[in-house]
Amino acid sequence: MRALIVDDSRAMRRIVGRILEGVGFEVLEAGDGQEALGVLEGLDGPPELACVDWNMPVMDGFTFITEVRKRSEWRSITLMMVTTESEMDQIVRALAAGAHEYLIKPFTGEAMLEKLDLLGLLPTSTGV
């Protein structure tokens, strides 16, 4: 399984990347939404998962998920916002725009795994 991590913080991409690799994902990275669209275009097929920050330069995460949802060939991508934005209406907007899950920073590795479990993206549901 492949996961695309879209975040302008390299440290955050590394943290999320480690967690995802730990459960068997091959990790791809992009520093903003525009770059992430480019990565998707260049792939032979869509990744299973994208973890997307909200605030980023060039193209923010909200715009990115809106763009992804416009493309039928990317419909199978599970989208998870991973962001410090924590207002109720932002979560509602992200879900309405097509995000499947929403993880608020800061988070623990366990919390991330529990979200993946909810999304059916853990190799075996062992109960984390």
Binding site: I91, A94, L95, A99, H100, E101, Y102, L103, I104, F107, T108, E110, A111, E114, K115, D117, L118
Partner: peptide, 8 residues
Amino acid sequence: VNRGLPAT
């Protein structure tokens, strides 16, 4: 609330 609670 991050622990296992679906966003919806």
